[in-house]
Design a protein around this nucleic acid. Sequence first.
DNA 1: TGGTGGCATACTGTATACGATTTTAGTATA
DNA 2: TATACTAAAATCGTATACAGTATGCCACCA
Lengths: 217, 217
Amino acid sequence: MITRKTVTSSVVDILREKIISHEIEAGTPLRQNALADELNVSRIPVREALLQLEAEGLVEFAPHRGAVATRISVDEVNELFGLRAILECDVLGYALAKITDEDLEIAQLVLKEFDELLKPGADRFTWGALNWKFHRSLYLPSGRKRTLGLIRQLHTNCDRYLRIQIQLVADFSRAEEEHHELLRLCWARDKRGAKKLLKTHILTTGRGLIRAFKAVP
Amino acid sequence: MITRKTVTSSVVDILREKIISHEIEAGTPLRQNALADELNVSRIPVREALLQLEAEGLVEFAPHRGAVATRISVDEVNELFGLRAILECDVLGYALAKITDEDLEIAQLVLKEFDELLKPGADRFTWGALNWKFHRSLYLPSGRKRTLGLIRQLHTNCDRYLRIQIQLVADFSRAEEEHHELLRLCWARDKRGAKKLLKTHILTTGRGLIRAFKAVP
DNA sequence: TGGTGGCATACTGTATACGATTTTAGTATA
DNA sequence: TATACTAAAATCGTATACAGTATGCCACCA
């Protein structure tokens, strides 16, 4: 099965990555012509990509003034992690009711990839993608597509700010430990314990980010 | 302050209304040419409108096959109302901590509009919009923009299915009573009571809808 | 010198045109 | 009769072209 990719979808991916990685800084106006020239495409796919990114919350449009990479406040970071905590704990509850051993083994494999990442010299920029992959593997059995869609968006937005703090290495390894513990609780089908841990897992990450955020405004 | 409207945004509004009102039925392929001719615009704004509606969950795109009005399952209705219950209760908690008497008076006014609506002969199709207006007025003081955005989308999606059941008149007046009671609890700043009522308010509406849904598949 | 109005420029929004892909209908073959 | 293949039509995706709107600069006036 080959997957056909439209130009627009490629542009979406490229721009999303550039925004998440802060190659495009928050507040930067996104000139359609410039982006089109840079990517060797016409303005139409660029426009359509920007519209999709607006839906994801990464850019904002103003009529006749174009798109701007959104600038986010501390309050909003707080809100994002709060939403994640609520929605992810909820969906985890549904997932644990149905989760199979095979599902858990898949999650285990993702954690293996994580271990690689923590070795020195590894590309830490894939951390966000891998983090999402792990979390998603636990939520997928719930079958709650809408919720998963919302959570995915929240992760994308959170990643933008997680990447600011490279100094969060310590936090990464803490997260890693919590992931292992979380998976253990899932194997035990301990719904209450897993939800509780997940909540603090998400909220402490958020708080750590906000602390670092305030230090370097 | 005049509000400039682009063609695209008008098309979004028109198509959204058509989908919510079931003038465009679920599963219908949305031909870009046909829509463009019908609305006397070119295909570009139609495409861009469809992209936005995809983000709202009202249509789905398949590459080179175009957009289709999404068909929703009972499970998904269930999920939507579940999400509403969680998110709205959460945001109501934050809102009640800050809500002022002026905010509450605004909400009161919206309820007045509601009373008009329940009189015989009134246009029941604006019910969904008004319902959202009331709920929003209670949540707005929270200042949680992201959450409000998500909830708005959920309301739009729920409306599509609420409108199927015109026979839900009884349910409408029940909802109306609950709105008054909810507002009363907000005046009293009874956070726990308000959240509890809101939860059952949303979930019973959802369950009623699903019952009716199963009766007429 | 400070402010207002008008023009030039840059950029966005929309239309039109073209090329690519999918679907469909028809024909040939097993 | 059913299936595989081919050609044509329909539809989508993208490029190019034009029109409308915002922004900045400069002349002009108080």
